[in-house]
Amino acid sequence: MATGGRRGAAAAPLLVAVAALLLGAAGHLYPGEVCPGMDIRNNLTRLHELENCSVIEGHLQILLMFKTRPEDFRDLSFPKLIMITDYLLLFRVYGLESLKDLFPNLTVIRGSRLFFNYALVIFEMVHLKELGLYNLMNITRGSVRIEKNNELCYLATIDWSRILDSVEDNYIVLNKDDNEECGDICPGTAKGKTNCPATVINGQFVERCWTHSHCQKVCPTICKSHGCTAEGLCCHSECLGNCSQPDDPTKCVACRNFYLDGRCVETCPPPYYHFQDWRCVNFSFCQDLHHKCKNSRRQGCHQYVIHNNKCIPECPSGYTMNSSNLLCTPCLGPCPKVCHLLEGEKTIDSVTSAQELRGCTVINGSLIINIRGGNNLAAELEANLGLIEEISGYLKIRRSYALVSLSFFRKLRLIRGETLEIGNYSFYALDNQNLRQLWDWSKHNLTITQGKLFFHYNPKLCLSEIHKMEEVSGTKGRQERNDIALKTNGDQASCENELLKFSYIRTSFDKI
């Protein structure tokens, strides 16, 4: 039985969820670079991206490699990797027998973001014989899940209580170790020597080791999670996991709180800001991140802002960003909400898709409305799209047979046209069989910064309504002859009103 693990408890099935942008060198404390989270699957090609990484700022997932063999891993080693800020997950990587050479110096898994409450997941690794993470000293947050690894031993010899604050939620089941077939031998045991430290858990006094050649490092209890030197002297209180010299914040392997210019500090002093819960960055760093993602459509890219001495992905609820200094300031009234469309555009074809934009005031991208039916549609669209004030790209209304009016965009005031449909149009209306009105132009103002209007096959939309939009939106004169079809717009509506004058002759039985 794995020490510190839980057996036999019912657990939810383990679901495996399925960018080499360097964020800056980590400095003297770390020998390499800070790398983003990685999802490495199918083959070993991307694994080489770990070569210079000291910190993975995010998670590391290595999974679904069915053609790899043990010899493929023999020359692979990433000794610079010290810390993973989120979680480490391995799933069905064939041929991998140990992690001792792959990650010989991995010391800390912070667990800032977890995989279903777990910071370390080893699942269905069919050839893994031992973990071998002999320098792993601290899992700051989260638990361990090690399950269905039929060859995995050296679990009962690990004292997880020396690595985690609590072992109650560890789930370590259905491994070879369960069948008591392992016969784990710690260093020196074969020669009758006791080389590794022994600890007591559940009444068992057991030597602690990761492999037959690597003991588990056990520091004096007084050192807590700070770690200790090879001689057993406690590291500085700002260290986490390990250090090369005692009581020196510049000799830590990793930091308990924050890293700044080669030393570990309790908090980031001005003019620095907390970033990702582990390091200090200056304003320029946060500003660069903001600008890199301002026009990016890459998933996970955030326009970072500053709030409460932190550089964070977005302002919290009730705050909006001051564009001059990136500071989050309290909103006066309802907060603006910028919604970034991942692929640059979004099609609204149902109430469900409209709900995804609920509360958005600025759309960074283009909207395509293609709704053919739905219950209580006008009210639903207004509830979900009615706060949109600005669209950076274009607005396209296409084959939306259920629409009679666009009044559900009740606050839309600006279409920038930074991206144009077919390279020309910022407003595009095609084949809307029941569209009769755009907006009530006596109450609604709309500016279209650039781009043209396109109207074709809107049989109940009168040309007068379209011409009014040209005047109000500032697009009059931009359109070419064929942009607004004269014969297919309003051709099934009563669009022309003329005053009919009647004269009559009164007659009676005795007068003409």
Rank of each mutant, 00 (worst) to 15 (best):
L332T: 02
D247V: 08
E314T: 14
K191P: 08
E124W: 02
P336T: 06
K224Y: 15
T320Y: 06
E180M: 09
G318L: 06
H28S: 04
C53F: 00
N117S: 10
H212N: 13
L63T: 09
I139Q: 01
P330T: 14
G95P: 01
E168S: 15
I158R: 08
P334R: 15
A119H: 00
S284I: 02
R162A: 14
T320F: 14
C301N: 02
P36C: 15
L81C: 00
L50A: 06
N150T: 09
D72S: 08
A198T: 11
N175F: 13
H28C: 14
Y134K: 00
P36M: 12
H307V: 08
W160M: 09
E49S: 15
R141E: 11
P249I: 04
E168W: 11
L120D: 00
L89A: 01
F275V: 03
D247A: 10
K310G: 15
K80Q: 07
C301S: 06
L120C: 05
H307W: 14
Y273K: 06
G300W: 09
E147V: 13
E57P: 00
K67E: 14
D248H: 03
S98G: 04
Y171T: 12
Y273V: 13
L102W: 12
P330Y: 15
L155Y: 11
I201K: 09
I84M: 02
A254V: 13
C182D: 06
D75G: 01
E168R: 09
I163L: 13
S143K: 12
V108W: 06
P270D: 11
C219E: 02
V206H: 04
T199V: 12
K129G: 05
T85C: 08
L155Q: 11
C255G: 00
H59T: 07
T107V: 08
A254I: 03
T107E: 04
C315H: 02
I146V: 08
R141N: 15
H302N: 06
R46Q: 08
N43K: 09
M38N: 12
F205P: 07
L289M: 15
T329P: 02
V108A: 05
N43P: 03
R298K: 04
Q303R: 11
E33C: 14
N135D: 05
F285S: 09
K224W: 03
D247M: 03
T85W: 01
T189Y: 04
S213T: 03
L155N: 09
G188D: 10
H307Y: 08
G232R: 04
C215L: 06
P187C: 06
N175K: 14
C196V: 13
V206K: 06
S225T: 09
G58F: 00
C328E: 01
Y171M: 07
F115N: 02
F123I: 15
S143H: 14
T189M: 07
A190R: 12
H290E: 02
F275A: 03
N138D: 08
V34T: 08
Y304R: 03
K129E: 14
I306N: 03
D178F: 10
E207Y: 05
P334G: 06
L131M: 02
I222V: 13
N308S: 06
S296R: 05
Q216C: 08
S317W: 13
H214P: 06
G32Q: 15
R297H: 13
L102Q: 01
G232A: 05
P269G: 11
L128F: 13
Y134W: 14
G241C: 05
K251M: 15
P313V: 04
H290A: 09
G32E: 10
N325Q: 10
R41K: 02
I122P: 04
A230F: 09
R41G: 08
K129C: 10
I222M: 04
L106F: 02
M83S: 04
D184M: 15
C280A: 00
L164I: 08
C286M: 00
V93T: 06
G262V: 02
F103R: 01
V206A: 04
Q276E: 11
I84P: 00
G241W: 03
N242A: 10
L326S: 06
P271N: 04
N257R: 12
Y319L: 05
C315N: 01
I185M: 08
E314R: 11
N295H: 14
I139H: 01
E49L: 10
Y304F: 14
P104C: 01
P79C: 03
N309K: 09
S323T: 11
C228K: 03
Q245N: 13
H307S: 11
P187F: 09
I146N: 01
G262S: 11
H291Y: 15
E266V: 13
T45R: 15
S112W: 08
I40V: 15
Q276T: 12
T329M: 10
L50Y: 05
H214D: 03
F285P: 01
M38Q: 14
L106C: 00
N322Y: 06
T194R: 09
E151C: 06
Q61K: 14
C335N: 08
G300P: 13
E130H: 12
C53R: 00
I84R: 00
L99S: 01
R297N: 11
P36R: 10
P197H: 09
Q299H: 13
R92H: 10
T157G: 07
V265N: 02
K129R: 13
E168I: 09
T45H: 11
P270T: 10
P197C: 08
I185F: 07
Q299I: 07
W278T: 13
V218K: 12
F123N: 07
E314G: 05
P36Y: 14
I139S: 01
L29M: 08
S143E: 07
N257V: 01
G241M: 02
Q276M: 05
A190T: 10
A119S: 12
V200A: 11
K217L: 11
C301I: 00
R162Y: 09
E231L: 08
G333A: 02
E238C: 04
S323N: 02
I222Y: 06
C182F: 14
L289S: 11
L106N: 02
K292L: 10
L136D: 01
S98V: 01
R297Q: 10
D248K: 03
P269M: 11
N105P: 00
H302C: 05
C196S: 09
G111T: 00
I139N: 01
D277K: 07
K193M: 13
Y171P: 12
T267L: 03
G37H: 05
V218T: 10
P271R: 15
L63A: 08
C280T: 01
N150R: 14
G95T: 01
H302M: 07
G300T: 09
P269E: 07
F205H: 10
F283G: 05
I146K: 01
F78P: 00
G262H: 02
C186T: 12
R298H: 03
V218S: 12
E181N: 10
A119V: 03
A190S: 09
L240E: 02
E168A: 06
